[in-house]
């Protein structure tokens, strides 16, 4: 898209391991429930119905996997001299520009799956509730580096309200 060309910067991506996490989540919360339902339906009403449910589950899971891949590709962030750019989304495309001077605080969070694969999410908060600048799937070292750099830059460029 032309949008991100106008905002030039060195775009980076979340780690590939984020894909793995999303796929595991997809398997746990989508494919597995479908499988259970398919087995239950198959036992209770007959193999034909069970197969139908399983087929439906396979299609839905397939679509989810495609969507996961596309969404991973859509993620990007760029650290520029004065601001951080974050872009994301396929269905709804979003690009955020957050000036370092506007940052109130930075969060680094990691769920159980994230921790296993050594990933973390960095979130920037400004005084505006609508700001959404959050980058998932960063390797821990990169997340810490980003947090420290953002905090330092925020301190240096802090602007009053």
């Amino acid at each position: 898209m032309g949008v991100t060309d106008l905002l030039d910067g060195e775009w980076r991506r979340p780690a590939r391991a984020l894909l793995t996490i999303r796929r595991v989540e997809c398997g746990l919360f989508l494919a597995l429930p479908f499988l259970v339902v398919a087995v239950v339906v198959g036992v209770l009403t007959g193999p034909a119905q069970g197969t139908a449910v399983a087929a439906l589950g396979a299609v839905v899971t397939g679509l989810a996997l495609v969507s996961i891949r596309r969404r991973w590709h859509a993620w990007g962030y760029a650290e520029r001299d004065d601001d951080l750019l974050v872009r994301r989304g396929v269905l709804i495309r979003r690009t955020s520009v957050v000036p370092y001077g506007r940052m109130q605080y930075v969060d680094v969070t990691a769920g159980p799956l994230d921790r296993r694969l050594g990933l973390a999410r960095v979130t920037l908060h400004t005084a505006a509730a609508a700001s959404d600048a959050s980058i998932p799937g960063l390797p821990e070292a990169e997340a810490t580096r980003l947090r420290d750099r953002l905090a330092a830059l925020g301190e240096a460029r802090a602007a009053g309200l």
Partner: peptide, 20 residues
């Protein structure tokens, strides 16, 4: 001087119509 952050969004319909 008071802007906290800037965003650009484009939903599915908007993308089809090349709007944002």
């Amino acid at each position: 001087a008071k802007v906290q952050s800037l965003r650009l969004t484009s939903g599915p319909w908007q993308q089809r119509l090349r709007l944002a």
